[in-house]
Design a protein around this nucleic acid. Structure first.
Length: 768
DNA sequence: CAGTGAGCGAGCTTCCGCTTGACTT
């Protein structure tokens, strides 16, 4: 055993560093935090100065045992966890749990994994920063207090098992408020007038310089401009430049991988993790845009070799994110000379993106020439403008161009314009006025939500992906595609014989992979905003971060900060628990014409529902909403339709066939067996036919039988197993829950067959 | 889960941030 033990957070990092240090050093990893508040209780003694009760995390027991052994045989232990609040706390926990003696323990930090940085760190050790550790404790305790006091309020006032927290609740609020903006948006139409001109040497497009808000005015402009020669009034050429973006941070990587590769936030992180573990890229959870000296030299060499000296320009990018802690480098390739790698397809694609972005960040600006030409149709004062762009020197554009979320900006493609001179007259070959509409704000995708969170300083690189997943798991938000709607727009085309008006139709408002708030998400957000405004405030995190900084500087006692926060917060929790009513999002839809009773929509114990009759009505009736409906916008008619369900369609094999709508959407039922009506088919329980229902039942049964037949060909194999949630049948990739009351140990093949035929395999179930 | 919205009510749910494998409902 060597004399020195170095402990870092990540095992991949440990491996790299061990290579940089000599034989006298053993490098081990803590695998992140080793100790935390117990997960099933508050674990904070509020009376006793918020004293936290830390426990070694169950999955870290082995890690600790292993580290303890290494400590025994080491003379010096070097705590080399990350240089930030959490890293400092991990070192402190290690010191406590491993019983490290101050005289033989050293704390070292480095923000890049290069040989020189590691050696520099070893030469200048420091001691643990107690203030920084306390700032982390304040952060941890505050988050636990907020989460574990707010969530139970929701259990009482809305629904059990819901959750609230400093980060997730604000994330949901962002989605809910955007949806409200979209609902409140009133579109306006205007006309875009565009002329096609011919200079004799080439064609170009010029747009009428003003927005025209009504068709009468558009008609007038087209009438007066049409058929006339277009005279060049002014001609301007301006030099311009474009500058490359900074190398990737976690957030920008998630955004670009989403736009360019179509990855979800979680997928990006998974693929990046594999690249990191195989030593292809630097650490992927970072908020820094900084590159190490070593990296800059390597990037420059690669650029000069591939493109020549003119293309190289070293740059530093200041990190502009609020609260960035910059414990790591930006995300970059570890070897700049590897433009491509071998391996799995998605790993290759993500790697290339990272390589290009990092290389481009150290390349020269692109130099452009922008041309603007103003035209006036002869004898009029209607100004038309043509814009063009020529790349004089491509610079970083040779490698990489960042994409954007703004679709309108991407439409506006600028090309080279044919040469013209002032006073020149061009032929008008076409002239049209097209009706356009102002755009509602767009819904958030996973990465664009991450972007906003980062801008607000909410959450950290390691939590963006889990947060996005949590708010979906809790049912606050769903990621969905929505079909667009048809809308008509008017077009005026200039013709010699007069102006021809036509109506065309286009699809608009289609959404792919966007985040939509659910009824629960909306009700919970409204409740929290109404009662816990401070926590839900977009600036709450920024405010407490400032205080954490004060603690870290030694200017504020961490327990004093918590006392000041907790007293009013807790009083607020108590008061809300006592005085606030249930939050159900209740909405009165109108009166049932048949009975004259009131019809209302709200969140019930089992989810969104419709009720006919007042609360005190003994004959009140209930119906559950379909999963594609919402209490916030369901109409009286749609609500009343739900009471026509479930309804019987007829008999098949002596069993009743009926349709209805359950908690997970519309279903067809055959005796005891249920089949979900597939969403994609555009069928709903009100319109489905008996024949189609039977088809669904039979096809599901066939699938189950086919699966069983396959079982006899040994592939896939069939198991009866005991899982975390009880006994289940494993059949290839599909798992089937064994109903309560059946003894898993004595099941016969016939019984297994029945269970499989009567239930949907878990892999096909919608995830909750 | 699916014909129901609570009455009696045990015991449970829940936070954010740092890391990977173990395990897969």
């Amino acid at each position: 055993m060597s004399k020195n033990l170095v402990i870092v957070e990540s095992p991949a990092k440990a491996k790299t560093i061990e290579g940089y240090l000599g034989k006298d050093f053993t490098v081990k990893s803590s695998f992140g935090h080793i100790r935390d508040l117990a997960s099933n209780k508050l674990s904070i003694d509020i009376e006793n100065n918020f004293s936290p009760d830390y426990q070694v995390s169950p999955d870290k027991k082995k890690v600790i045992d292993d580290l303890k052994k290494s400590v025994k045989s080491a003379e010096v232990v070097w705590l080399a966890t990350d240089e930030d609040r959490e890293g400092e706390a991990i070192s402190w926990h290690l010191q406590e749990v491993l019983n490290l003696k101050p005289e033989s323990t050293k704390r070292i930090v480095f923000s890049e994994i290069t040989k020189s940085a590691i050696h520099r760190a070893i030469e200048s050790p420091r001691s643990l920063d107690v203030h920084l550790v306390n700032a982390q404790q304040a952060r941890r305790v505050l988050d636990r207090l907020v989460g574990f006091e707010l969530s139970p309020v929701l259990w009482k006032k809305v629904r059990p098992s819901l959750s609230a927290g400093r980060v997730q609740s604000v994330a949901v609020r962002i989605i809910v408020e955007r949806e409200r903006e979209i609902e409140a948006f009133k579109k306006e139409s205007f006309f875009r007038i565009s002329a096609e001109l011919d200079s004799g040497k080439g064609k170009l497009k010029a747009e009428y310089a003003q927005k025209v808000s009504n068709i009468g005015q558009a008609r007038k402009v087209v009438e007066e401009s049409g058929g006339k020669p277009f005279i060049v009034e002014a001609l301007e050429k301006k030099p311009a430049k474009r500058t490359p973006s900074a190398p990737f941070t976690t957030s920008t990587l998630q955004q670009e991988a989403g736009r360019k590769l179509g990855f979800s936030v979680a997928q990006t992180m998974q693929v990046a993790q594999r690249l990191y573990e195989s030593g292809r890229i630097t650490y992927m959870r970072t908020d820094s845009t900084n590159l190490s000296e070593t990296a800059l030299v390597a990037a420059k060499q690669q650029i000069v070799n591939s493109f020549g000296n003119d293309y190289s320009q070293l740059r530093n990018f200041a990190t502009k994110t609020k609260g960035a802690q910059e414990a790591h480098e930006a995300i970059r390739p570890t070897d700049f000379s590897a433009e491509k790698i071998t391996g799995e397809k998605n790993e290759q694609r993500l790697y290339e993106l990272i390589w290009k972005r990092a290389i481009a960040s150290q390349m020269s600006d692109a130099r452009l020439e922008r041309t603007t030409i103003d035209f006036l149709p002869s004898g009029t004062s209607h100004k038309y403008v043509a814009k063009g762009e020529v790349i004089l020197f491509d610079g970083f554009l040779k490698v990489y161009l960042e994409s954007t979320d703004d679709e309108a900006a991407e439409d506006e493609q600028k090309d080279m314009l044919p040469p013209v001179s002032k006073g020149q007259s061009l032929d008008m070959t076409a002239l049209t006025a097209t009706e356009r509409f102002s755009q509602a704000p767009s819904r958030y995708s996973e990465p664009s939500l991450v972007k906003v969170l980062e801008e607000l300083g909410i959450g950290r690189p390691s939590t963006y992906a889990p947060t996005i997943s949590t708010i979906q798991k809790r049912g606050y938000v769903v990621k969905e595609n929505r079909e667009g709607a048809k809308r008509d727009y008017r077009v005026l085309v200039y013709q010699k014989t007069g102006i021809k008006e036509t109506v065309k139709s286009e699809n608009h408002g289609a959404e792919k992979g966007k985040l939509f708030p659910t009824d629960i998400g909306i009700v919970v957000t409204d409740f929290l905003v109404a009662n816990f405004r401070t926590i839900l405030d977009y600036n709450f995190t920024a405010t407490v971060e400032k205080e954490f900084d004060d603690i870290a500087m030694g200017n504020l006692e961490w327990t004093a900060m918590l006392t000041k926060f907790y007293k009013p917060f807790h009083a607020n929790v108590e008061e809300t628990t006592e005085t606030s009513g249930r939050a159900s999002g209740e909405r009165i839809l109108g009166t049932d014409p048949k009975t004259g009773k009131p019809v209302s929509a709200r969140i019930g114990r089992f989810g969104p529902m419709i009720q006919i009759g007042a609360q005190d009505d003994d004959d009140k009736r209930f119906a559950r909403l379909r999963s594609d409906q919402s209490i916030t916008n369901i109409s009286l008619e749609e609500a009343l339709d739900l009471f026509k369900l479930p309804r019987s369609l007829g008999e098949f094999e002596n069993l009743e066939v009926s349709v209805g709508t359950g908690r997970f959407g519309p279903y067809v039922r055959h005796g005891k067996a249920f089949v979900s009506i597939p969403k994609s088919a555009g069928e709903d329980p009100m319109t489905i036919t008996f024949d189609r229902a039977v088809e669904l039942i039979v096809s599901k049964r066939d699938a189950a039988e086919k699966a069983l037949i396959l079982e006899f060909s040994e592939e896939p194999t069939l198991f009866v197993l005991e899982g975390r949630y009880g006994p289940y049948i494993k059949f290839g990739k599909d798992n089937f829950k064994i109903p309560r009351g059946q003894d898993a140990a004595t099941l016969t093949l016939v019984q297994i067959r029945e269970i499989m035929a009567a239930s949907v395999p878990s892999s096909k179930k919608r995830k909750r």
